[in-house]
Design a protein around this nucleic acid. Structure first.
Length: 257
DNA sequence: ATGGTTGCTTAGCAA
């Protein structure tokens, strides 16, 4: 099973790139973040034509997440707490062929010490509770998405430019490490210990030409699923050409199912 | 370095 995650930064602006990427890599599952569109604006017809079922949790202008799957999808859940109406569309999960797939768009956090920073911390803590309440680490589960966190220096190209920002702050890193301690394997890191591979480059300041990148898009798997991990890949080439997202797809291939 | 770029929604915000 091939699973991927991609912050597309507007599914409307990125529709052509999305379709071409699906055709090329044929993932069984793709989690999308930052749709920046309500459900009705999702390019459903085009994506279905490529053989995908779609579960969308959209929002106007900001956020928005989706799961695309070639295999049947069931038990779709939207949000960390469906009882809270009008909450940011940042989490969607579904059963796909016996694996629970959770797509997450962790808040960016604005500036360290801001209200947005506290919201990010609280959201990460809630996600940790969500895992504990709904799932078990001895069952096959994937948690992937834009975590807005570079876990250590190997995931930061220019350390001096990013020290103590919301993407590298020790409190944020500790909160994501706490998620890991529930029972999650960082699939890309498990196969690429050396670092220096990135998933996001700022549009500003010539981020990509200067390779001022960070690895903030992660694909976690629980141990029973990680034991079947075959291959991991971050599609750096997707950042090239006209109108790229500022993030690239991250993919993992498992031998099970 | 309080810049820079992109996208949504229409001038300001978020990233």
């Amino acid at each position: 099973m091939r699973v991927a995650t991609w912050n597309v930064n507007s599914v409307i602006a990125r529709t052509e790139r999305l379709l071409r990427w699906l055709e090329r890599y044929q993932p069984d599952v793709l989690c999308l973040q930052e749709l920046k569109a309500v459900d009705d604006k999702f390019p459903e017809v085009e994506v279905r034509a490529l053989g995908y079922e779609i579960a969308v949790f959209g929002q106007a202008a900001y956020n928005g997440v989706a799961i695309l799957s070639k295999r049947p999808v069931s038990d779709v859940r939207r949000g960390l707490d469906p009882a809270i109406e009008g909450e940011d569309a940042r989490l969607i999960s579904a059963d796909v062929g016996g694996t629970r797939v959770i797509g997450a768009y962790v808040p960016n956090g604005g500036e360290v010490g801001s209200d947005k920073f506290e919201y990010k911390m609280a959201w990460l803590r809630r996600l940790r509770v969500y895992l504990g309440e709904h799932h078990r680490a001895d069952e096959p589960l994937i948690l992937c998405g834009d975590f807005n966190c570079a876990l250590d220096d190997r995931d930061v190209a220019k350390k001096d430019l990013h020290d103590n920002t919301v993407l590298t702050h020790p409190e944020i890193r500790a909160a994501v490490r706490d998620l890991e301690s529930w029972g999650l394997v960082d699939t890309f890191r498990s196969q690429h210990e050396e670092g220096g591979a990135y998933s996001w480059w700022d549009y500003r300041m010539l981020g990509f030409p200067k390779n001022n990148g960070l690895r903030i898009d992660l694909l976690y798997a629980t141990p029973p699923l990680a034991a079947t991990l075959q291959e991991t890949f971050m599609d750096r080439d997707e950042r090239k050409g006209k109108k790229p997202s500022d993030h690239v797809p991250v993919m993992a291939t498992f031998s099970d199912g």
